[in-house]
Design a protein around this nucleic acid. Structure first.
Length: 213
DNA sequence: CAGTCGATTCACT
DNA sequence: GTGAATCGACTGA
């Protein structure tokens, strides 16, 4: 039997650890998005670690820019970026301030507020697809650039916070190469997921885009 | 300042 | 399985 998920917010100290330690530990945790229409709660099932300035796959690899500034700030804050001209993806900053490590939230199971998530994800054919993929996850939760820099550890009625939930045991964690990451950044097995969970997104290798003619 | 391309998704064949 | 969508951050000249 499964214990009732722990609704205690995760403390900042949880995120102030090596990102490769935090990433698998986030699986099974709850992400609560407070919207004007009510809360949407997601159980994390798939994440990817981006290891600060040493990681060629990370947005922080070439140093601080206007876009990635939040990655260099304190842990427990949300880094949201815009990509492919139409999507947002969200991360949780990890490690000490200044290190610029983060965990990309790639997929999850909507456990509360599914009716709200469905309105934002009209192309989803079933509820398992509501947050199957990083941009789908952000869309389902109504996360965009306006939430970049949000403190997910802050007390009170915040737009976004992470609760303890029900962490999974190490034997339930699968891992492999990160999805869609180019070049040398693609070699590390820094993608983590809950084994056999139907909301985990399929792996895809990076594909360089063809030049337009 | 112009060119390139992305931590993706969706429709279509 | 393949290609289009769509735009702004980043790069290098």
């Amino acid at each position: 039997m499964i214990a009732t998920p722990d609704r205690t917010p995760l403390a900042r100290a949880f995120f102030d650890r090596p990102v490769l330690e935090v990433a698998p530990d986030l699986l099974g945790r709850l992400l609560v998005r407070t919207t004007p229409d009510g809360p949407i709660t997601l159980r994390l099932t798939e994440v990817e670690a981006y290891d600060g300035p040493n990681d060629p796959g990370s947005h922080a690899y070439r140093g601080r820019t206007a876009r990635n500034g939040v990655m260099f700030g304190p842990p427990g804050h949300v880094y949201v970026y815009f990509t492919y001209g139409m999507w947002f993806c969200m991360n949780l900053v990890c490690g000490p301030e200044g290190e610029s490590s983060a965990v990309l939230l790639r997929a999850g199971e909507i456990v509360e507020g599914a009716e709200l998530a469905r309105k934002r994800r009209l192309s989803a054919r079933n509820d398992m697809e509501l947050a199957k993929g990083p941009a789908r996850l952000a869309t389902a939760l109504g996360v965009d650039r306006a939430l970049d820099g949000t403190d997910a550890c802050a007390a009170g009625d915040t737009p976004l916070r992470v609760l303890a939930g029900t962490p999974v045991t190490p034997d339930q964690v699968g891992n492999g190469p990160r999805t869609g990451v180019a070049g040398d950044g693609g070699v590390h097995p820094w993608r983590f997921w809950i084994a056999n969970d139907p909301t985990v997104s399929p792996y895809r290798a990076h594909v360089p885009r063809r030049r337009r003619s």
